[in-house]
Design a protein around this nucleic acid. Structure first.
Length: 279
DNA sequence: GCCACTGTTAGCAT
DNA sequence: CATGCTAACAGTGG
């Protein structure tokens, strides 16, 4: 669920609330969700202030005093939000922070437990690796870099867009929406695209992501922002989840295929595969 | 009850 | 290195 726009929304919301707060207590309710770190080491955050909150790809990064960094990935069903501590804690809540002189606590809740937390000193190798494995930010990459990046690869567009080491932050929903706006078939080999098509693709990435961020992301089922609010971009999906629906541009029925075990939705008329019907 | 499906990623085999 | 399958997990809907 949470892809770049959802994570960005959460980070912006939490940044307003948490920046500068001192961590009073750390509660670890599920030992399995920690990666690359001994869960008890997370307690080193107690007494530290949160300096900054930022996003990289789909990762949420809390920079704390003492060069300590907390990394949170929401997986498919993760939620990260502030709430008053008298709200009941259900069995899917795995991590809590509370703060000095602040009434709310920060909760991490994740039904499927595909999300994870990690904690490291800024100079520690594994932390650098987990972040440094990520490809460029789709809203920051220069047009010329984007074009040369794709030209070098022969994999199919949909796979590349989902590959976090290639470009960071896109997931199944936004990859499909982006390809629709770019009028490109998801199975096209990247290196078969012309320069114009690649620029169209980058423009679609910027347009779709920025609009989704404005609307605070897409809520299909679980996604909520830092104040437990739903996003509104799901009302603007053109292809994702729209199998058999008429295309909003041409009226043709949207189709669904499987690419690497995952659903891909597209319009067969607006996103042709045959080279001669493109351009 | 069973089976298929779900917005992610890492790890492994080919 | 690229590609493709599976598992990790829990819930929902047919």
């Amino acid at each position: 669920m949470p892809e770049l726009p959802e994570v960005e929304t959460i980070v912006r919301g939490l940044s307003n609330i948490l920046k500068g707060l001192e961590i009073a207590t750390v509660r670890l309710l599920c030992p399995k969700i920690y990666k690359d770190v001994d869960p008890s080491d997370i307690k080193r955050m107690v007494g530290k202030k949160i300096i900054n909150i930022r996003r990289r790809g789909k990762m949420i990064i809390l920079d704390c005093e003492g060069n300590l960094t907390l990394l949170i990935h929401l997986g498919m069903t993760g939620q990260l939000y502030c709430i008053l501590p008298d709200h009941p804690i259900d069995k899917h809540t795995h991590f809590l922070l509370d703060f000095v002189d602040f009434p709310q606590e920060l909760r991490f809740r994740d039904v499927r437990k595909f999300g994870f937390l990690s904690c490291f000193f800024a100079d520690q190798a594994f932390g650098l690796n987990r972040l440094s494995r990520l490809g460029p930010e789709p809203l920051e990459i220069k047009s010329s870099d984007f074009v040369s990046l794709f030209k070098r690869h022969k994999a199919r567009l949909k796979n590349l867009l989902l590959d976090q080491t290639f470009i960071a932050g896109l997931g199944n929903i936004y990859a499909d929406e982006i390809l629709f706006h770019a009028k490109l078939h998801p199975l096209l080999p990247a290196h078969s695209l012309g320069e114009l098509e690649l620029r169209r693709l980058l423009n679609a990435i910027r347009k779709v992501l920025n609009q989704a961020i404005e609307l605070k992301g897409s809520s299909i089922r679980d996604y909520r922002d830092s104040k437990s609010q739903k996003g509104r971009f799901q009302g603007y999906h053109r292809v994702y989840g729209k199998e058999f629906c008429p295309c909003s541009v041409c009226g043709q029925k949207i189709v669904r295929i499987r690419i690497n075990g995952r659903s891909s939705f597209f319009c067969p008329d607006c996103q042709p595969f045959a080279i001669k019907s493109r351009k």
